[in-house]
Amino acid sequence: MRGPARFRSMQTGWRWYEIVFWAAAFAMLVLAPSRLLLLNEIAIFALLALSLDLILGFAGIVSLGHAAFFGVGAYTAGLLAKHFSEHALLGDPTIGLGIAALTAAIIGFASSFLVLRGSDLTRLMVTLGVALIVQEIANRLDWITGGADGLQGVLPRPVLGAFEFDLYGRTAATYSLVVLFIAFVVARQVVHAPFGLGLKAIRDNRLRAEAIGIPVNRRLIAIYTLAAALAGMAGALLAQTTQFASLDMLDFQRSAEALLMLVIGGAGNLFGGLLGAIVFAIAHDVLKGITAQYWQFWLGLSLIILVLFARGGLTGLLRLLYRRVRPEAAP
């Protein structure tokens, strides 16, 4: 398949590997009943990495402060669950999720103006700075947030009034996975549309993007706001499913981990963040079992190897392999 026909299928249809991936992900709910808490964690990480991919992989905005939105989402959902546990509507996790997304989006929109211009380095510093400010505000507002002790007494109601959160994480994992899937579908639609092509155009050549009429700033504001909303949803999921929100959800380390997942998985194709989150969480789980102290050492080492020898991350490697096997069909 070539030319227009190939373009059409790539920009529209679901590819076989997408279907396989999601079928496998949902099958895990049944196949791995003892690892549902891990699955829940992976889905949440994946959503955070996916949202970062939208701005980094597609729009080319590097960020070291994505945890700001994650944390804002976590506290918003946590506070709603805490104070509205008697309220059927405001206490519902899905409503909490929506309000968390909205709150994170507002903060994302407001701070987007700071990342419109400037070099990668300025953007790194600005995003880092915004996250530090948000974290410090959360710390100072300890009568609301619980400060360094974290937000206690988060008691989410059953999802949609029907699905109680259970000890094994069945509801949690299902809920997070469904939210991740919906976010993926939205992100997929966005990047496969002219809007997404425009983002890549801005990433590759801002001067030319402007010259063909793309309102660059408006587009960057839009995608930054959307990414913030999705990151806020990831934070909300974590707060709701672990019944806790804490300052470390706003931490630099979390932003760095999200970036790491993208590097591991490969940026700019939506799946990189998902695969990166899986590898990261499993590596975390396995390496911690072997060497509780030094798991970050091994993670760091594999990171260096990846960046030196496989810049495109796992998805880049897979694509390379696929091209070997089927030179004509490779995506």
């Binding site: 227009p4 373009f7 299928s9 529209t12 249809g13 966005v190 496969h192 549309a193 002219p194 092509l197």
Partner: peptide, 10 residues
């Protein structure tokens, strides 16, 4: 149109 799949406009 901005958010419709680019592949849908034959």
């Amino acid at each position: 149109d901005l958010f419709r799949s680019a592949g849908s406009n034959g």
